[in-house]
């Protein structure tokens, strides 16, 4: 009986002392935290991909919480997109900028059929290494190396190497235009472009800057810098034997004409979606 009583007393004292210590420690080391930060972090996708330019979602939330109405406009989460930013803006009492939805686009169409392999690559599967040691299997110094560094870096599973063509394909629904593939590709073949009206967009699927004849030797669908597209639409610029279609060019207006008149087929256009494409 004595033992039980003394045990209860001893344990009670220990518990009380521990509680006291915990109380003072929590007082002493209390971290002042903006409750807004946590709230915003809840809204964000939580992928910590760094596409916004911050180290992770928490840092982005911090930046949002600190921002004023003007500097808030410079912050954008490409992964969450417009809907997420609207929620963040609501939480902070700002007005959200409406940005157009974007998607990553591969500026190369050097498929196995268009640009057959000329050499045998016998090294670890990495575009960055392959780029260092040679022009790659196709012989095109600016084309896709087909080894899929972009696939491995994509956190959203939006990229995959097509089994037949050998080049990566972007899954429009999964792509969040975080830009990881843009940074990873040693030849800078990816570009973040607006999805376009009804998902229709037109672009040059080539990055080769060699002279037309040289480029065509390696790849059937290389841009040869013939200037035909520039005559159709004055906004299009051709530099270093390579055409570039700015995002401002309306796909609906010029698209089909550009594709029809490109002699090599370097210009491609995505098909329009029948139903409502996106919100």
């Amino acid at each position: 009986m004595d033992i039980i009583v003394s045990d209860i007393i001893a344990l009670g004292i220990i518990a009380f002392l521990s509680a006291l210590i915990l109380y003072f420690v929590s007082q002493k080391f209390h971290v002042e935290e903006n409750p807004k930060v946590e709230e915003i972090e809840q809204i964000l996708p939580g992928a910590n991909c760094g596409a916004c330019g911050k180290a992770g979602c928490y840092n982005f939330a911090e930046a949002c919480a600190k921002a004023n109405a003007k500097s808030f406009k410079t912050l954008y989460c490409p992964v969450g997109g417009a809907s997420t930013m609207k929620k963040v803006a609501d939480a902070l009492g700002f007005k959200a900028e409406v940005k157009e939805e974007t998607v990553a686009v591969l500026k190369c169409n050097g498929t196995c059929e268009n640009a057959p392999a000329k050499i045998f690559y016998d090294a670890p599967v990495s575009c960055r290494l392959a780029h260092q040691i040679s022009v790659g299997q196709t012989g095109c110094p600016d084309g896709c190396l087909r080894l899929g560094d972009c696939v491995s870096v994509c956190k959203f599973g939006a990229l995959s190497i097509h089994p037949q063509t050998g080049i990566p394909v972007v899954d429009e629904n999964k792509c969040t235009s975080c830009g990881a593939c843009v940074k990873m590709c040693p030849r800078g073949l990816f570009e973040i472009r607006p999805k376009g009206k009804n998902g229709q967009r037109v672009y040059v699927a080539c990055s080769n800057k060699q002279k037309g004849a040289v480029a065509r030797k390696n790849c059937k669908v290389a841009c040869i810098g013939c200037m035909k597209c520039a005559k159709i639409c004055t906004q299009i610029k051709v530099e270093n034997n390579l055409s570039y279609i700015p995002v401002s060019v309306d796909a609906e207006e010029f698209g089909s004409e550009l594709v029809k008149n490109c002699p090599t087929g370097a210009i491609v256009m995505t098909e329009a979606k029948k139903e409502k494409g996106h919100d």
Binding site: I133, S134, V135, G139, P141
Partner: peptide, 10 residues
């Protein structure tokens, strides 16, 4: 002119 080197780059 630009001529491919040993690794194929101009």
């Amino acid at each position: 002119d630009n001529i491919p080197d040993a690794f194929g780059y101009d």
